[in-house]
Write a protein that binds this DNA or RNA. Structure first.
Length: 569
RNA sequence: CGGUGAGUGGCGCAGCUUGGUAGCGCACCUGGUUUGGGUCCAGGGGGUCGUAGGUUCGAAUCCUAUCUCACCGACCA
């Protein structure tokens, strides 16, 4: 491709709206343009990258035994009513009507369509397992699209759906897809981590997310420094810090005027915050005889709302009690609450239970207890895991300690079980001739999001640094002063033709621009190698090739160049 | 949905308080100059000032309504 016949579309200035680096660079490098909130046009350079990512994903899917299909973007609303998601999915599901006033949706995902397909096409266990996938545009009407391509409303996703006669078969395919996902991210050249993801709401189901590690990620990932354990902080298990032990101190009431926060108490009583516990009051579940439940955490820990919501006693979604209601019920405000002598159910975090002789509110304004102990001073309570893990916690698998990093979710795999096959009655005849519902798995990769995530991970002050695997071009020819030098032009043209002939993705910058302009544009776009052709080196029969990532320049004989480029990674 | 801020040429912005012929930088076009890291000079084209209504002799500027966008939060995966 010649730049003179291409839509390069680079920009010097960053549009004001671009917040994250990938968004800024994608706009400046001429990869995408915004059409409306969360909607982007992909320009030639961006599309080249997108297509390369898609090709790798497709290849790994095929290798893993998945079969490609293509389903409609527009789906009948009836299917969503059937699965129950017409009501459950909420406003993120964009609903439209056709000319006959029938309901349709723009597909945010395709469980309904694919289940409907398989229900009609598959009738025998002999046809299983089956794994179908597509690479296709999805639409989710996000409340707040942001970070450019990272969280847009329209995006491209690879979604696969597998169908099985039993859980064992599902698990086999699940493991195969897990491996295929690892292969994809390794081939692209991203630093990533598979993490344990939410599995609670569908009961017994298994789920993993794949995260590209980057500081701008929206998720916190906890991982072990000594094993493969990694989980989203939302659900990483927090194990007890130390043993439960009996204390020796006397339960003592102390005055703590004005001290309403844990920090203030610790300062006032000159103790470690780890010696305190804090008590939070939340709404109880409707089925409970109580209105409120008390949650007790060690002073320095924070509540994990996802874990708490899963407890039967607690209302879901989680609702914190308001202070006026707490005062009416318990006769004191937030700052002086404690588990001793409380008239509502008490749930204690595992690590809070290990604190002996602790300090807590006395349920009287401006007073606290010191030397409090479980069992002795608080008779009835339940111990649960209700806090967020923090860096330095022991890993739940018993190996090493946890560290926390930011991640961008680029893949999510899930053992669905029979959720959809049951709702839509999708089954087959088994070996014994009886009708059985299918077990399903679903597996998503955000193809467009990978492009943005790759940039978040690979950039410098000059622009993007593409891994060779997904670079829009493998190499760019930058001629110096070609419009004056017949020799430069001749060498550049010949090299361009030779590279095209051997199938290298080459860009030839034949614009009548100053060298600096060309260098800057090509570094911004992030092409892995630049071949600089100038009279200065041609006089010695040499050509310079520069590595975008390392900045390293190599001088080569003109005659050896073609071979050298063909052998580049 | 709540809070905050912004809509002026393709992009980045000034002008608005105090109403009076719409400006700057980048980009673009022409000519010259320069040519191994975003040259310099001269000339030029392009804007219903988000939209609608109002006040006024006169509105980018004041008033009202409305739309859009961004950021923070909530929500979602």
């Amino acid at each position: 491709m010649r730049t003179s016949q291409y839509l390069l579309a680079t920009q010097k200035e960053t549009p004001a709206e671009a917040e994250v680096i990938s968004h800024q660079l994608m706009l400046r490098a001429g990869m995408v343009r915004k059409l409306a909130s969360g909607l982007y046009t992909w320009l030639p350079t961006g599309l080249r990258v997108l297509n390369k990512v898609a090709a790798i994903v497709r290849d790994e899917m095929n290798k893993a035994g998945a079969i490609e299909i293509s389903m409609p973007v527009v789906q009948p609303g009836d299917l969503w009513v059937e699965s129950g998601r017409w009501d459950d999915y909420g406003p993120e599901l964009l609903r439209i009507k056709d000319r006959h006033n029938r309901d349709f949706v723009l597909g945010p995902t395709h469980e309904e369509v694919v289940t409907s397909l398989v229900k009609n096409e598959i009738s025998s266990y002999k046809q299983l397992p089956l794994n179908l996938y597509q690479i296709q545009t999805k639409f989710r009407d996000e409340v707040r699209p942001r970070f450019g391509i990272m969280r847009s409303r329209e995006f491209i996703m690879k979604d696969a759906y597998s169908f099985h006669i039993d859980a064992q078969s599902l698990d086999q395919t699940y493991q195969r897809m897990h491996q295929a996902y690892c292969n994809v991210f390794e081939r692209i050249g991203l630093s990533y981590r598979p993490v344990i993801a939410d599995s609670g709401s569908i009961g017994g189901a298994v789920s993993h997310e794949f995260h590209v590690l980057a500081d701008s990620g929206e998720d916190d990932i906890a991982y072990s420094d000594a094993s493969d354990y990694a989980a989203n902080v939302e659900l990483a298990e927090a194990i007890a810090l130390g043993q439960v032990r009996a204390g020796s101190a006397q339960l003592t009431l102390v005055d703590t005027p004005g001290a309403k926060t844990i920090q203030a108490i610790a300062t006032l009583l000159k103790c470690d915050v780890k010696q305190t516990v804090k008590t939070l009051i939340v709404k109880a579940d409707e089925t409970s005889e109580h209105e409120f439940v008390a949650l007790v955490l060690r002073g320095d820990h924070s509540l994990n709302s996802i874990k708490v919501e899963k407890l039967a006693l607690i209302a879901s979604p989680l609702q914190m009690a308001d202070e006026a209601a707490v005062k009416a019920k318990l006769y004191c405000g937030f700052g002086s609450l404690g588990p001793v002598g409380l008239s509502i159910p008490v749930i204690v975090d595992r690590s809070a239970e290990t604190v002996a002789d602790f300090i807590c509110g006395a349920n009287t304004e401006a007073q606290h207890f010191t030397g409090a102990n479980w069992q002795r001073d608080v008779k009835t309570y339940v111990v649960e895991d209700i806090r967020d893990v923090v860096a330095g916690d022991p890993s739940p698998d018993g190996n090493g300690t946890l560290a926390i990093t930011k991640g961008i979710e680029v893949g999510h795999i899930f053992q669905l079980g029979d959720k959809y096959s049951k709702a839509m009655n999708c089954g087959v005849l088994t070996e014994t001739g009886k009708h059985d519902l299918l077990q399903m798995g679903c597996y998503g990769i955000g193809v467009t999001r990978i492009v943005a995530a790759a940039i978040e991970q690979h950039n410098d002050k000059f622009g993007i640094i593409w891994p060779q695997s997904i670079a829009p071009f493998s190499v760019v020819i930058i001629p110096m002063n070609m419009h004056k030098s017949a020799l430069v032009k001749e060498v550049a043209e010949k090299l361009y033709k030779d590279l095209c002939d051997v199938g290298v993705d080459v860009l030839f910058d034949d614009r009548k621009e100053r060298p600096g302009v060309m260098f800057n544009d090509m570094e911004l776009i992030g092409i892995p190698y630049s071949v600089v052709i100038g009279e200065r080196n041609l006089d010695n029969q040499q050509i310079e090739i520069k590595n975008r990532k390392s900045g390293e320049k190599t001088l080569l004989e003109v005659d050896n160049l073609l071979e050298y480029i063909k052998n580049l990674g």
